[in-house]
């Protein structure tokens, strides 16, 4: 440690216009995304476990538990869209866990003391989580295909279904980030990890609302997860639960509206929280 320093402050952004600001925001977000990708590269086991868990659930429900309650026809065709929906929804806890862990780390202080874009940490997280979800969906659809699931409505509908699934994941992502910042304690993450199960079962992801008491059926039909699962089944051309309520017959609309509304609420809240962190 003998090198001498010259104090030529590195002039960061010579042109400080609005355009360059946006450019730096994008560059910073990409740097933060790369950070997450580097984490994966250093913890491949964790990444694989994250991918294998939903596949395991799919196989368990598909083979061990067998036909769902009140479902006519091929259960696997009913199950796969439900499991895809559930996997996207459970992304909430994954995001919440990583943000909670991240906020507890000193490195966040360094980020906040640097001239970087203040939202980049969150945007980087969301890009990385979305990439992870794309990989996760691909794996699950591949496994689904291998065990006999098929879709029958052509490529455009297929992509539409995938789009709705990722939209749900995106909404869950911002809820997860916000929850982590409001109450980011490991105990709370655990509570959420448990609570997502009853919420998932209170949807038509796995069981059909037909088999439930009517008041519960109504709750289930309005669950955002049900909207996505139903819409995805329609788009894939897979058998769905036959409901007659407004929510059941407008599933496509709700599968768009629910996540968009959730993002509209939680995205600004989360960004504001992060800006105000420890102020």
């Amino acid at each position: 440690m003998t090198a001498t320093h010259s104090v030529t402050t590195v002039e960061a952004n010579p042109a400080d216009g609005a355009g360059s600001k946006l450019g730096w925001a994008a560059a910073d977000s990409w740097t933060m995304t790369r950070r997450e990708l580097a984490h994966w590269a250093r913890q491949p086991v964790q990444v694989v476990v994250g991918l294998v868990f939903p596949v395991m659930m799919l196989l368990m429900f598909g083979y061990l538990i067998g036909g769902g309650k009140g479902i006519e026809g091929d259960f696997k065709s009913y199950l796969l869209p439900g499991m895809l929906t559930m996997t996207m929804a459970f992304g909430l806890e994954a995001t919440m866990l990583s943000v909670t862990q991240d906020l507890g780390k000193g490195v966040i202080d360094r980020f906040r003391s640097m001239p970087m874009n203040s939202g980049a940490v969150l945007v980087g997280r969301s890009i990385a989580d979305m990439l992870q979800s794309v990989v996760g969906l691909t794996v699950m659809i591949g496994v689904g295909y291998a065990i006999g699931w098929r879709w029958s409505n052509g490529f455009a509908s297929f992509m539409g279904a995938v789009g709705l699934l990722l939209l749900l994941r995106f909404a869950m992502l911002w809820i997860g980030i916000h929850l982590a910042m409001v109450a980011g304690k490991p105990e709370l993450v655990q509570a959420v990890q448990i609570l997502v199960w009853p919420v998932a079962f209170l949807s038509n992801a796995i069981a059909s609302p037909e088999s439930m008491p009517s008041w519960l059926g109504a709750v289930v039909e309005w669950n955002p997860m049900s909207a996505t699962a139903t819409a995805v089944r329609d788009l894939f051309g897979n058998p769905g639960a036959v409901g007659h309520s407004w929510a059941a017959t407008h599933a496509e609309f709700l599968a768009l509206a629910w996540p968009v509304a959730l993002v509209a609420v939680f995205f600004p809240l989360a960004v504001k929280r992060f800006r105000d962190l420890s102020r």
């Binding site: 950070r35 984490h39 000193g106 966040i108 202080d109 001239p115």
Partner: peptide, 28 residues
């Protein structure tokens, strides 16, 4: 530059990865 009381580096990444990341965020 800030050296906080507690370490402010990413524990999961290597030393070089950390420094490179901070350099990028300083817009070098």
């Amino acid at each position: 530059g800030l050296l906080g009381q507690n370490a402010a580096v990413d524990e999961e990444l290597s030393g070089r990865q950390n420094l490179e990341m901070f350099g990028r965020l300083h817009h070098l």
